[in-house]
């Protein structure tokens, strides 16, 4: 059975387990890991093989050496498909891979059949297409929260790859990596629950209310663009057309009107609830449960109620 390469960046995330689960339907799963491999976890979800690549040539430069590593591996093992995460870096590696191999690619898939047919949600989640790579092998990036990860134990063989980065791969140096505050919350795009605040939250300090509810529900915090532009919350938490696309089990919109560009990033959520003082706010058109009211009254009461029930 042909190998299927699953490219793992920045440690094993939920999307990694989803990719391993999907990959099992297409062939024998091989993980390509940059940095230290979590062999136990990857094996638990069915990786038969793990290729690792590390060192200054991988860490010290932006993306390009990683694409070279994957391209070399593709040429050697002739995999049935290459899966990457639909993250900035995953898409960037995929882009370079497509050019190196003169191959098609599909981004943001939410499903992938055994024959390489990918399902993609397009036009802000309002339509679904099925597509196929018609030149070369399927190179597909998978969006987080697409499938439920399912374990399937395997004992992976580990092979360390030599990194042969070219001069062209070393044109962009990474001189510093800075982690900004995130705490213990789940990552926005992978979270099962997302609690977002909008302009209605009023100021940066009040976002504590949004964070409190998120923490009580075990969710991530998101924000509308108006909230981000007003400086209430950092940009990497923006949900919408020009921010992150999220598809959690539960999306809570607090003081968000529900503009089309905001919906673009959240309307495929399973369940949506909203608190807004304007009964006419468009967010109510997609909310499964809506409370028309002042979030400064409704949210603290809800938080108390959750604490009571715990």
């Amino acid at each position: 059975m042909a190998e299927v390469l699953v490219v793992v960046e920045n440690g094993v995330k939920k999307v990694t387990l989803e990719m391993l689960t999907i990959a099992r339907g297409l062939g024998s799963v091989s993980a390509v890991v940059f940095g230290d491999a979590d062999t136990a976890k990857l094996g638990e979800f069915g990786a038969e093989k793990i290729y690792t690549a590390s060192g200054e040539d991988v860490d010290g430069y932006l993306v390009a050496p990683k694409a070279t590593v994957v391209a070399e591996l593709v040429k050697r093992v002739q995999p049935a498909a290459v899966l990457l995460a639909s993250t900035q870096e995953g898409k960037e590696i995929a882009a370079r891979l497509a050019i190196k191999l003169d191959n098609g690619l599909l981004t943001d898939a939410v499903g992938l059949d055994a024959d390489g047919t990918a399902t993609q949600a397009i036009f802000a989640g309002s339509a679904i297409v099925k597509s196929k790579v018609t030149k070369g092998l399927p190179i597909v990036t998978i969006r987080p929260n697409s499938v439920t990860p399912e374990p399937s134990a395997a004992t992976p063989a580990v092979e360390e790859l030599t990194v042969a980065a070219s001069d062209a791969d070393k044109l962009t140096k990474v001189v510093e990596r800075v982690a900004e505050q995130k705490g213990s919350r789940p990552e926005l795009t992978e979270a099962g629950i997302v609690v977002s605040g909008g302009r209605g939250v009023g100021n940066a300090d009040n976002f504590k209310l949004v964070e409190e509810l998120a923490d009580l529900l075990g969710g991530a915090v998101g924000a509308s663009r108006a909230a981000v532009d007003s400086g209430y919350y950092p940009h990497q938490f923006q949900v919408g057309q020009t921010g992150k696309t999220v598809s959690p089990q539960l999306y809570v919109a607090l003081g968000i009107s529900g503009a089309i560009q905001h919906r673009a990033g959240m309307q495929t959520s399973k369940t949506i609830v909203a608190v807004n003082k304007d009964a006419e706010a468009p967010i109510f058109e997609l909310a499964d449960f809506g409370v028309v009211g002042d979030l400064f009254k409704v949210v603290p009461q809800a938080a108390d109620e959750i604490r009571k029930r715990k």
Binding site: V275, G290, V298, E305
Partner: peptide, 15 residues
């Protein structure tokens, strides 16, 4: 859209 309630003091609890 699904259910929509107007907060009259118990909106948080209903949520």
């Amino acid at each position: 859209g699904g259910a929509k309630v107007v907060d009259e003091g118990t909106g948080g609890e209903q949520l």
